[in-house]
């Protein structure tokens, strides 16, 4: 009855199926990260954009936890791991998040995949933009894991910026929303109108 565990397709991340703790749609992914940290969860979370249809996104991210501390990240559609995977499944707007629990021993083998490792605070920073949660995660994480954090602050952001398609989608959605809101607010007359050249238009990918 349950969905197969993440990584059941041909992927480098293979996890046993865990016990589902909760499944819900969240505006702020800090919530599930905080829950995992507070419960010192051994297990994993599956993140999917809940407005996938709108953005055309199909990303499905998996994040594992060791005693509540984020350990591995993997995104199935792109087959990417580590901070690059976070960049794949980070997106504006709500997520559907499923949180699963597993015995720590069941995760040991998967956690040997060091190429999928994320610095402990990266999910709090790059998914949730929550500096306090990031700091608390660093405090709880084993010191050797925090050392890994090192100068990795920008790597997920760097991978995100390489995804022109996703950034174009975010921009187009924002422009559509701006125009729609302008109409609601009676500000349509203030809109610049189509085709007015503005610096940076060349960076846009149009449909």
């Amino acid at each position: 009855m349950q969905e197969p565990g993440p990584g059941s397709e041909a992927t480098p991340m293979r996890l046993p199926r865990g016990d589902l703790l909760r499944s819900h749609v969240v505006d702020d992914p800090a919530g599930p990260l905080r829950t995992a940290l507070d419960r010192q969860l051994s297990g994993y979370a599956v993140f999917e954009p809940s407005d996938a249809l709108l953005l055309g996104a199909r990303e499905r991210g998996v994040l594992t936890f060791e005693a509540g501390v984020p350990t591995l990240a993997y995104e199935a559609a792109s087959d990417r791991g580590g901070p690059d995977a976070i960049a794949e499944f980070a997106h504006p707007g709500p997520y559907r998040v499923e949180l699963y629990e597993l015995p720590a021993s069941s995760l040991a083998a998967a956690h040997e995949a060091t190429d999928l490792r994320v610095p402990p605070a990266t999910p709090a920073t790059e998914l949730a933009d929550d500096p306090a949660l990031a700091e608390r995660t660093r405090e709880v994480a084993p010191p050797e894991r925090v050392d890994d954090d090192g100068d990795d602050e920008a790597s997920a952001l760097e991978a995100f910026l390489e995804d022109e398609e996703k950034i174009s989608a975010i921009r187009e959605q924002a422009r559509d929303e701006a125009e729609q809101r302008a109409a609601e607010w009676g500000l349509t007359g203030e809109l610049a109108g189509d085709g007015e050249p503005t610096a940076g238009d060349d960076a846009l990918t149009t449909e």
Binding site: A128, D129, L157, A174, A178
Partner: peptide
């Protein structure tokens, strides 16, 4: 990433005007 996404949104609003 979230801050950059939000900033892009602000920029698009601004540019719309």
């Amino acid at each position: 990433i979230p801050a950059l996404s939000d900033a892009l949104k602000v920029q698009e609003y601004a540019r719309s005007y």
